[in-house]
Design a protein around this nucleic acid. Structure first.
Lengths: 279, 279
DNA sequence: GATTCTTACGTCCCACGTAATAATA
DNA sequence: TATTATTACGTGGGACGTAAGAATC
C-alpha cells in the first residue's frame, strides 16, 4: 500500500509546480522527493508525470491522482481531528454558565469529583446557546437561570444569587436598608464585565454611568482605591477578600435575585448526582 | 502523521479481538503489532486500549478511532481503485461490435494506429448497450449496424457484410445462383455462436436445425470434416483459410446484408479519423 | 551559469523477528 | 500448561542527505 506521506508529497508537487520547490516546502531534499514520486509510480505501475530532461509535469493520470489524493488527505485529517476531539471530550470537562458567581461555587466541586480532568469554563449571557451547547456536547455541565424541560437533560436548582450595591462609608445611599436600581440614576459605578445574564440588569439602568473593567484584579483594586459604588452579590461577597470601609445594601428589584439551575445530559448522571446544590 | 498501515492494523485488532490473532492475520509478529499500536497511541497522546496484564481491549477512544479508520481505509482504497482504473482506461482500447466479421477487419487497424495499447473487444447483439457503452466510456470504439445520430458521437460507414451459405459440392442447393432463408427449411446446418446481430437472422429460421459451436477452431474443423451446410460472409471468406470442395451461394433475403458503422466519442477524433473504412 | 531532475553512494534509523519475561485462565 | 501482552536485543532494509551527472533555459 502507498503512504499518506506520498499523497501529501504528490499534492505538494502539484501545487509547487516543480520538484525543487515542493521539496523545499516539505523540508526534504529533491532526490528524496524524486524517489518518493518514483515509488508512487511503481505502485501504480504507470507514470504520473511526463518527463523531459529537466522538467516534470503531471500527466492525465497524475492530475486524476492529485484530485483523489486531496480527498484522501481530507478524510485522513478528519479522522485525526475526530479522534483528537474524542480524546479531548473524554479528558476535559467544559462548563458553561450564564453568571460568574455560581460558576465560582461549581468549579471546585467539579474538580473534586473528577480529579485529573482538564476543566474549562465559559460565561455567556446567551442561555439558549448554553442549552444547545449542552445538548451538542460542547459542554458537559451548564448553569443557567431557568430550568430545562427535556427528558434527555437532567436539571436541578443549584444556587441563588442576590445583587447588592457596595457603597463607601459615608455615601449618601449607604444608610438605606434597601434600594432600587432607579435610585442609582446619575451615579457613576464600577462594573466588572462578562457578567452573563446580569448584563441585562444593568443594561436597563441607562441613567447610571458605568466604568467597565475586564480584568478581575484591576477591578478589585479599583473598588478598594476609589469611592465609586459597585455591584456585589451574596456569592462574590464570600469568594473575594472582604472590602473594608464598605457598606452593602441589597437591591430590592424583582430581577436582582436569580436562581441558577445545574443541567447535564442524562447519560452523565453520575457526575451530575455527585454535585451538591449550594443553596 | 500516522500511517495507513497502522489504521489497517487497528481495524484488524478490532476484528480479531486479540493482538495475537490480528498479528497472525496480518502476517507479522505480535511484538511488531504491539509496538505499532503503541505508536498510534503515542501519536494521539492517549490510550486506545484498556490493558490488563494479558488482555487488551479497545476503550471508548479506540472504538471511535476504529469507526473513522474504516472510513479512511475505504477512501484510500477508492483512491487506489480510481487511479488504477484511470490508468487502465488510458492504456487499453475496448471495442464493442455487434458482429464478429467487421471486428476482424477493425482490430488490426486499431492495433496499427495505437501501438503498445492493450486491446480488448466484445461482441454483443444488443446494439443499444453498445451505444450506451460508448457514451459512458466502457468502449472507445463501437461497430453497429445503424448510424448514431448524436452531436457528441462521431460515426461513419465502415464496411458491409453479406451472408452466404457454404454447401459441399454436390449438395442439391449448391447449383443455385442465390437462395432464400426459407429454402433452408428442414436442413441441418453448422452455426458458430456469438454472431451478434446475425443472431436475429437465423432465429427466424425456425424450420432449420442448427448445431451450435462455441469454439472457433472446432467449428472450422467441423465444417471441413462434415457435409453439413454452414454460413459464410464476404468477410469471413477472406479471413479464414478457404474451404476446398465447397460452393458458396449468396442469401438473397433483404436482411442478409448489413452495413456496419464505426462510432467513437467526439473527443476521440484523432483515433477515429485514422481508421479507414473497409468498403 | 543557474535551474532542474536523476543516479550513485554511504549512513543511520527504524521496524522487524527472535527470545525472554510476566501474568492470567 | 497454554495463551497473551510487553520488554530486550540484534539485524537488515529502506529512506535520507550529499555529491555527482546530464540536460535545458
Amino acid at each position: 500500500m502507498f503512504e499518506l506521506q506520498q499523497l501529501q508529497q504528490l499534492i505538494a508537487v502539484a501545487e509547487a509546480g516543480t520538484l525543487s520547490a515542493a521539496a523545499e516546502k516539505l523540508h526534504i531534499s529533491q532526490p528524496a522527493l524524486s524517489r518518493s514520486m518514483q515509488k508512487l509510480e511503481e505502485h501504480f505501475e504507470a507514470p504520473l508525470f511526463t518527463r523531459t530532461k529537466n522538467r516534470m509535469t503531471l500527466n492525465e493520470t497524475g492530475l486524476c491522482a492529485v484530485q483523489y489524493a486531496n480527498h484522501v488527505i481530507e478524510t485522513a485529517t478528519a479522522f485525526d481531528d475526530a479522534v483528537h476531539e474524542k480524546i479531548r471530550s473524554l479528558t476535559r470537562i467544559a462548563v458553561g454558565a450564564s453568571a460568574p458567581g455560581p460558576l465560582w461555587l461549581l468549579m471546585p466541586q467539579v474538580s473534586r469529583e473528577a480529579p485529573g480532568m482538564m476543566l474549562s469554563s465559559v460565561i455567556s449571557e446567551n442561555e439558549a446557546s448554553l442549552e444547545s451547547g449542552l445538548k451538542n456536547e460542547t459542554y458537559r455541565l451548564v448553569l443557567i437561570s431557568h430550568p430545562i424541560e427535556d427528558t434527555h437533560i437532567l436539571c436541578k436548582r443549584y444556587t441563588s444569587e442576590q445583587l447588592f450595591v457596595s457603597f463607601p462609608i459615608g455615601h449618601p445611599l449607604a444608610s438605606r436598608k434597601g434600594i432600587l436600581a432607579k435610585d442609582l440614576a446619575g451615579l457613576t459605578m464600577l462594573l466588572f464585565s462578562n457578567l452573563g445574564v446580569w448584563t441585562h440588569f444593568h443594561e436597563r439602568m441607562t441613567d447610571t454611568h458605568f466604568i467597565l473593567q475586564t480584568d478581575r484584579q484591576a477591578f478589585s483594586d479599583l473598588v478598594t482605591a476609589s469611592v465609586l459604588p459597585s455591584f456585589v452579590t451574596n456569592i462574590s461577597k464570600n469568594n473575594q477578600n472582604p472590602q473594608k470601609d464598605r457598606i452593602i445594601v441589597p437591591l430590592l428589584d424583582a430581577d436582582a435575585k436569580k436562581t441558577f439551575y445545574l443541567c447535564a445530559r442524562r447519560n452523565d448522571k453520575a457526575l451530575f448526582d455527585h454535585i451538591r446544590p449550594r443553596l
